[in-house]
Every structure is written in C-alpha cells, then in structure tokens.
Design a protein around this nucleic acid. Structure first.
Length: 961
DNA sequence: ACCGCCGGGTGCC
DNA sequence: ACCGCCGGGTGCC
C-alpha cells in the first residue's frame, strides 16, 4: 500500500528516512507516507476515517475542558505549512517507532506539519486514546522558525471527563487553563478560529434565533441567479422562465473559473479566509452544486437540459441527428466494437427479453418493471400526439433492463466527436474527454427519468441513455464511458461498490455525476455514501427538495460529495461550521449561509421572479359543506356523546385523563366515526378493570388498533412526529417503539410513562398486530347510507351531470369508510379506483395509472386514504377533492390536496370539506385553526409547548367540557 | 537553534 | 581533572 520511495520524497532535506524501517504497515501510521503533493484526496479521506472511528464525534454535549499552549516540533522534516491563525488537526500515531505516544500535526489540507513535543504528547496520547477529550489545535503566530512553533490546544470533551483530563495533564506537569495567555483577541471570527472560548465572542444566538436561521437557511437562494439561458435545440420541451434561470445558473457553476467559496487570491497565493490556509496552486474548482428547488419545479427537466446544453467548453452535447423520424428505426443493436448497425431488432424478440428481465431481477422491488410498461404506453402515445418525440424507442427500456442491447449510436460521428472517450475510460487520463453523465437515483424515480428523457428530448436526435440496472447490466467500462447518460440506482451503485473492487461505475471518468434525491445519502458511514464519494467526475450535482433532513450534519455529506474543501473532511466541517453554529456563533452561521448560498439554488412554489409567481398554478378554492345529521343519526350520536362526556368528565375530575388517554381517544374516534357513518363504529371495549395479562393484552391490542385504524394522524408524545412502529403501554399510551425504548433504557427500572408517570417496562409494550385484522366488517348484509354519504353522492352526481370529464378525489382517514362509500359508487355506476396504505406497491401504481389516464371510460373517482402515498404522488387528473372527515393535522390535508394541485394541473381545484354540524368535527376544525395560527406565528414554538397540556386542552375542547 | 544538549578536548594565571 | 570550562556537532517523534 505504501512505498518507502514515497516517504523519501517528502523528506527532501534529509537523507535519513524519518520513520525508521519502512516496514511498518499499520494504516494509521502508514498513511503519512502518502503525503505527496498531489494526492490530497486520499489523505483527506484517510484523516476523515481516522478521526471518525477513533475519536468521539464532536457531539453537542462536548464542552471545553481546558486550553494549553504546546509546541509543534520537527517542522523541517515535512512539507506542510501553516499560517498565523490557521487550524491544524492532531492525529495520534500509535505505531510511530520512536514514540508510541506520538501525536502528529497536520494542516487543513492533510499535509503533515510536525509532531507535538514528546513530553506533551505523552498525556495527550492517553487522553486521546481513551476518548477523554478531543484536542484541536490552532497555530497562533504561524511559523517563526524552521524547527518548531507554538500551537494553541483546546480540549473538548464530556463534562464528566474534565477531572480525568486535568489530572492526566497535571501528572505530566501541565496545567490546563481557560485562556491562552499573551494572546489578544481580535475579531470574533479569529477568536472562534483560535479555539478561544465562545463566551467572549459576541452574544451567542438564542435557540430560537438559531432555529429560525436554520429554517431560513435555504430560503431566498435565488437573488442574482435570475439570468436565463436557452437550452440546446435537442430539448423539445420549452423551459419555463425559472427553469431557464436554473439552467443558466447550473451552466455557470459548471463552467465557472471562480475560486470555490472562501478562497481568495492574494499576491500570487490562494488563501482560504476561514482556515487561513494558503497555497500556491489554485484550489481545485468545485464544478456543480445543489439544486434544491421544491418538488414539482422541474429539477429533472432542468438537469436534462443541462446535460444536452453544456458539454465541454460551454458547447452543446454533440448528438447524432437521425434521418427518419420513425422511432423504431433508432434501435441500435449493441456491438461493442463501434460497429455501425442500424438494423432494428425485432420487437417480439425484445419483448421476450423484457419478460426475461422481469424475472431476472431478484434483488429489488419490481416497480420499475411495472413502470416499464407504463413507459411503453406513454411513449407510443406521445409519439402520436407530439411530433414523434421519442428518444428511446419504446422497447429500449425493455432492452436496457435486459441489458443485452443499448443505444450505442452510429459510432462514426460520436467516436470522432468524443474522440478519446474510450481512452479516458480505460486509461483514466485527466478527464477532459469525459462524455457521460451518471445519474444515481432511488429506484422509485428511475422510470420517471426514462419517461422524462423521452418526453423532453427531440425525436430526431439520438441521446445515448443506458440503464445500468438489473442482473444483466453490462459492466463494460468502455460501453459506459461512451454513453451520454447512464442511469442507475443507489442500490446498484453500492452493491457494485461493496461486492468487488471492480465496480465499473467507479472506473469511468464521468463528465458529470448527478445524485437525484441526494438527501437519501446522508449517513457518511453508510456503504452507499462511500460508493457515491468514490465516483470520479469533473462535475457533481445534488438534486434534492429537502437538502437538510434532520440536522446540519446532513449537509456535511453533500459538501463531501461536492469535494468542497476543506469541508469534505469531517473535522474541518465540524470545527468551522457545525460546532460554531450549534453553539450559537454568529460568525459560524454567517459562514454557513455564505457557503450554502454559493453552491445552492432553491426556489419554492411561492418564490417570485420579478414580482411574479414562479409557477402559476390554477386557483384553489376550499368550501366547507356543513352536513346535518338525520334525526336518527343525531339521536345515536348524542347518546354516544353523553356516555363519552360522562366518562371523560370523570377522568378530568379525577385528574386521570392521561392515565386513560387511550380510552379518551377511543371515545373520540367513535364520535368521529358516527359523524361519517354509523356502520363504521366497531365494537367498543370499555374501560373495565384490567383482567389477567392476556385479557389486558387483548384490550390493549383493541385500543391500539382502534387508534391506528382510525386514520387519525396520532402523534408520538416523545418525538412529536407521526407514529413509527407503534406500541401501546400497559397504561394504554401509544408511542413509537424506538422512542419509548429509549426512555426506558435511560431511566432503567425507574422508567415511567411520559404521559401518565405509570411505571413501564420494555417487555410490557404491546405491538400493533397488523393492518388487516378487521376488514370488510361494515360492508356486509344490509347497507344503509348516512347523511355525509348522501351529501357526497349528491355532489358527485351533480358534477357528473355538469361535466363528466371532471375527476374527483374522495379522501377519508377511515379506510372502512371508503369501503362503505364504494357501495353507492357502484350503485350509481361510477367508475373508481382506490388508493390506501394497505395496498401493495404494484396495485398502487396501477390505481394511480388508471386514474391519471384521461381516455373515456377511465375512472373518474379515486378513493384516497389521507396518508396514502408519498409526497411525490401525482394525481393531477383530479380537480375536485372531497375531504370526508377533518384531520387532526391540517398539514396532512394540505399535502393531500397538493397531490392534485401541482404542476401539471390545468383546471381550478375545488376542495369540499364535509363537516357535521354541532359535532366533534366542528371542534376539530377549531383546533386545526389554532394549530395553524401557531405554525404561522413562529417556528420554534413547538418544543416549548407542553404536548401533554396541549392534548388535555384539546380533549376539553373536543368534548366541550 | 541568536537555543539546549551531548560528548570530546582541554586544563594556572 | 573521579572536576569545570570551552566550543563544535547536532537537533522531531
């Protein structure tokens, strides 16, 4: 792995090898031998690995334990340089043959600067090896002589380790202080850089300010990015203004000669203003960035436009013009030797292959195959409707899946134009000849990419798109390098990467790598992250609507992928950005903002360009239709309500409302169900005395089933999010299993239920047994209608009379209510589909496809369960929405409406919410309004509110107590 | 390193 | 002188 030759290279001023025998092979030590001038990449990663697994993370609970000034020695043996005020990293070197306590000092670029003087290294080694503290260094005066220099060391660790660290240092005659003596503080920037205590810098940001700044981090990232650019001719679809802006911005990011963020040129040197690092060589350009537009603004189209519009030197990608417009003629058989062969492969043959492809695929879901058929269909259609805009002909997907055939275009032209592409791939030369763009995406959007290429590229040009997917995928580096686009999934990429070092994707020199839904790679330790980081490319893009999923940490992975130095190394990211920001440092936040702004373009649906909305969506109107219960229904309802109020009222008096929370919920659900349809109401297991454990268990299962099947978006009181892996405690409160287990783990045998303080144990958590326990119970025997169903039906019938082409979504939280609604729909001869959470993936896809189809006789109604489907769900065929029952969470309703009120919707959208007068539903609407006001008012408030208190108040309001 | 340390040369004033 | 002192060689871990 390392050679002793190299080690002598780095010691030009001494004949003696610095490390004694060159046989030492431990990676910890050996990587230093790699410190040659060009290879900063590898070193950075080595250091990243070292710091990652050997040292505790820079967790937020780490505090400053103490400071001391130390000495770096041995400067003359190494090439690494440091400037005044520059950060350095300290790396343990336990295999050093001269001193197993050795602590190496490296600069931001990972080049070794020297060692910590051995006397100080001894206690430091102990502290570092035992993870008592992290040590960070800043060089206060820079290098003043050839042999040694001062370094300000800051120890960060858990409070509980403070004494141990101080003792260890004292033992060796060192005293940790709280300030570096003789150092006058300057700006707060240099203060934070020098590792001085932050209490001296400007007033830190409050938690709320921080949260706010955080929420807004990705807002308004469009100023100065409003120049437009026309795409190359090969793009069939005309771009919207904001898409032309994105194209212009992306093109300029790719062609820019600007220095990366935070770099400045000063008298022949390149200077990083954050780390104070200076180099002679111009820092590597960061070509690419993050396109973080909201979903639906056309990231895919923009990217396609970029691919064909910005090849080398700002010229469009040279594409073969095909003579005939017949799509089937464009099929080329695969002959890897650059042979011209235009003969179309017989379609029946390919269809068979397609079928084989379906079976051959074992590792992943069969969605894309399902969608392959969709693709075929739409292609045919578009070929007829538009002027034959087909890129891949309809069999290509099949062929690609089968991978025995791909579009290797007529070799003559492309081989000439991209001369050297073959060489690049095999020889791995500089890369200026790179041609292909690799797109990595989640499986679920794979077919979307193919669709979009077909839709948006003109039919008379041949864009070579290869789907690197499926068991039969071709692993030829040459073949891949010759494509214009290679499409694959994160799974394929990481399984190739993990299985063998021969991953062809990692051997190609890509012109461009695009990570679609880039936020899915956010754990830097995951295999797929490593697979993504090791791709070689000139330009790199991340597409993501939500670049930061959870915390600032997520951004690290993205910067790491973009190779934005020095943030691609965890230590620098943490020291320069993450920790300062989390500690409320204003300068750190400012830097973060500058950083993000420099590489990100984000617009939301609400963004405006020159005062006009980015995307002009059709209108959206909401009507509330009040439903009056029939006398019979009212009687039943009131009876249940009285019972419920009595029970809940008693709980209030006793102050046991939380202890009996599940009962309360059950009562509320029953009331809500009565509002919809009496037939919905399941058997009620009362709040009797708990019996034997098995009876108790049954009771609890009943309750949790009731709560979950109700479709009410019940929150977990611990994480305040929707329930994941719901479990119910013996005291009948429902939480996410991971959340409550964490509570139990940390409090051990004293663990108490967060809602009622009853004692809880892990083994007493009862799981939700599964979805399909009580299906179809309501649909049997004699069916009767309800006021709400009647109201819906009269709407639907009127609508059908007025305009039979209008399609509607009928949304409910109760899947069993949907069962009931099916009866009259059939009776009145409506054609409908259904989409709910219990459906298998392929049935869902079919339901959506059927519904979106506009041909006569296609379903006009979709029964949709409120929470079904991801946010990406596209139901633009519908322009009417009927909300059958109010949700706890108004955002859930909005999201649902967004599925049809989005890009592609041509009609005004009318939403009708059915609310039963004088009922629990009206009260829910009031609570919804309140919640919305809260959300509108401030972001940071959610935490400060006591969820328990909020719930009690809600129950009061709901039950009118 | 315009130091500290080592070890050889040297040795009254 | 089994010392002190001088001055050259030397120098990270």
């Amino acid at each position: 792995m390392q050679s002793s030759n190299k080690s002598s290279n780095i010691n030009p001023r001494t004949a003696a090898p610095p490390h004694g025998p060159s046989t030492s092979a431990s990676p910890r030590y050996a990587f230093i031998d790699f410190l040659d001038v060009g290879g900063t990449m590898t070193i950075s990663q080595e250091i990243a690995n070292l710091t990652e697994d050997s040292v505790q993370d820079l967790a937020e609970e780490n505090v400053q334990i103490g400071l001391i000034q130390g000495t770096v020695v041995g400067l003359r043996y190494y090439t690494g340089t440091v400037n005044r005020g520059e950060m350095v990293s300290l790396v343990r070197e336990p295999q050093n043959p001269y001193d197993r306590n050795a602590v190496m000092v490296a600069n931001v670029y990972g080049r070794q600067v020297g060692h910590i003087k051995k006397e100080l290294a001894a206690p430091m080694a102990y502290i570092m090896d035992n993870n008592l503290a992290r040590v960070e260094g800043v060089v206060p005066y820079g290098q003043t002589n050839k042999f040694s220099m001062a370094v300000n060391l800051t120890f960060w660790g858990k409070e509980e380790n403070r004494d141990a660290v101080h003792n260890q240092m004292r033992h060796h005659g060192f005293k940790l202080g709280t300030e570096f003596k003789g150092y006058t503080t300057q700006t707060s920037l240099s203060r934070s850089l020098l590792g001085l205590s932050s209490k001296m810098s400007a007033i830190p940001l409050t938690e709320e300010e921080l949260k706010n700044a955080f929420d807004k981090l990705f807002d308004d990232l469009m100023e100065d990015k409003t120049r437009e650019m026309e795409p190359a001719e090969a793009v069939y679809t005309s771009l919207l203004p904001h898409q032309k802006q994105a194209l212009s911005w992306m093109t300029s990011r790719e062609n820019s000669n600007d220095l990366p963020p935070f770099w400045e040129e000063k008298s022949g040197l390149y200077f990083n203003v954050l780390t104070n690092f200076a180099v002679k060589e111009r820092p590597e350009k960061v070509l690419g960035g993050i396109l973080a537009d909201d979903m639906g603004l056309g990231k895919t189209l923009t990217t396609i436009a970029l691919i064909v519009s910005n090849f080398h030197n700002g010229k469009p990608l040279p594409l073969e013009q095909s003579e005939g417009s017949s799509s089937t003629c464009k099929m080329k058989s695969t002959t890897k030797d650059h042979e011209e062969s235009n003969e179309a492969v017989s379609s029946s043959h390919l269809k068979r292959l397609h079928a084989d492809g379906v079976c051959a695929d074992t590792t992943e879901e069969d969605v894309p195959l399902k969608k392959a058929k969709t693709t075929k269909k739409t292609v045919k259609k578009s070929a007829n409707t538009k002027k034959g805009v087909v890129l891949l002909d309809d069999l290509d997907f099949a062929a690609a899946l089968e991978c025995s055939s791909s579009q290797v275009g007529p070799a003559k032209k492309s081989a000439k134009k991209g001369s050297g592409t073959g060489k690049v791939s095999s020889g791995g030369s500089g890369g200026s000849g790179a041609r292909a763009t690799l797109i990595v995406c989640p499986l679920s959007v794979l077919s979307n990419w193919l669709d979009q290429f077909e839709q948006h590229i003109r039919a008379d040009v041949t864009l070579k798109v290869y789907l690197y997917y499926g068991a039969e995928r071709k692993r030829s580096v040459k073949l891949l390098s010759e494509q214009d686009v290679v499409l694959t999934t994160y799974n394929v990429l990481s399984s190739d990467f993990g299985n063998k070092a021969t991953s062809p994707l990692h051997k190609v020199n890509w012109l461009r790598v695009v990570l679609d839904e880039g936020h899915v790679v956010r754990n830097p330790n995951a295999l797929q992250s490593k697979a993504v980081l090791e791709l070689q490319s000139e330009r790199r893009w991340i597409l993501s609507g939500t670049p930061i999923q959870n915390s600032l940490k997520d951004l690290y992975m993205l910067l790491s992928f973009l190779k934005l130095k020095p943030f691609d190394v965890k230590e620098w990211w943490s020291r320069i950005i993450q920790r300062p920001v989390n500690m409320g440092d204003r300068v750190g936040l400012k830097n973060l903002q500058v950083l993000v702004k420099g590489i990100t373009l984000r617009r939301t649906k609400n963004s405006k360009v020159a005062g006009r909305m980015l995307v002009q969506l059709p209108e959206r109107r909401v009507f509330v239709q009040h439903v009056t219960l029939s006398e019979e229904e009212r009687e039943e309802y009131e009876q249940v309500r009285k019972e419920g109020r009595k029970i809940v009222g008693r709980y209030f008096e006793e102050g046991t409302i939380m202890t009996n929370y599940a009962d309360v919920l059950a009562i509320l659900v029953r009331l809500r169900q009565y509002c919809c349809h009496p037939g919905l109401v399941g058997k009620y297991t009362g709040a009797d005395d708990p019996g034997t454990p098995s009876e108790l268990r049954e009771r609890l299962i009943n309750k949790i089933t009731l709560v979950l099947n109700s479709g009410s978006d019940e929150e977990c009181a611990i994480c305040l999010d929707s329930l994941r892996q719901p479990v119910i405690t013996y005291c009948a409160h429902v939480y996410c299993r991971p959340c409550i287990c964490e509570v139990i783990q940390s409090e051990k045998e004293h663990a108490r239920c967060p809602l009622c303080r009853a004692s809880i144990k892990t083994k007493e958590l009862v799981e939700y047994p599964g979805e399909e326990t009580q299906a179809g119970a309501a649909t049997g025997e004699s069916w009767r209608s309800s006021s709400k169903v009647d109201a819906l039906m009269s709407n639907l019938l009127r609508l059908r009379n007025e305009d039979p082409t209008v399609k509607s979504l009928v949304v409910s939280q109760f899947t069993r209510f949907m069962d009931l609604i099916e009866v009259p729909l059939r009776e009145y001869g409506f054609s409908f589909t259904r989409l709910d959470g219990t459906m298998a993936q392929k049935n869902r896809a079919k339901a959506i496809q059927d519904f979106q189809d506009s041909s006569p006789g296609s379903p006009t109604i979709m029964l949709l369960s409120l929470k079904a489907g991801g946010v990406g769900l596209n139901l633009t065929a519908a322009s009417r929405v009927f909300m059958m029952d109010p949700a706890w969470n108004p955002a859930a309703e909005d999201q649902c409406v967004d599925r049809c009120h989005r890009l592609g919707q041509s009609r005004d959208v009318v939403i009708t919410k059915f609310i039963v007068k004088d009922s629990v539903e009206e009260n829910m609407v009031k609570i919804q309004k309140k919640k919305q006001e809260l959300v509108d008012k401030a972001f940071g408030l959610k935490k400060s509110q006591d969820p328990k208190q909020t719930r009690i108040e809600e129950i009061r309001a709901l039950m009118e107590i």
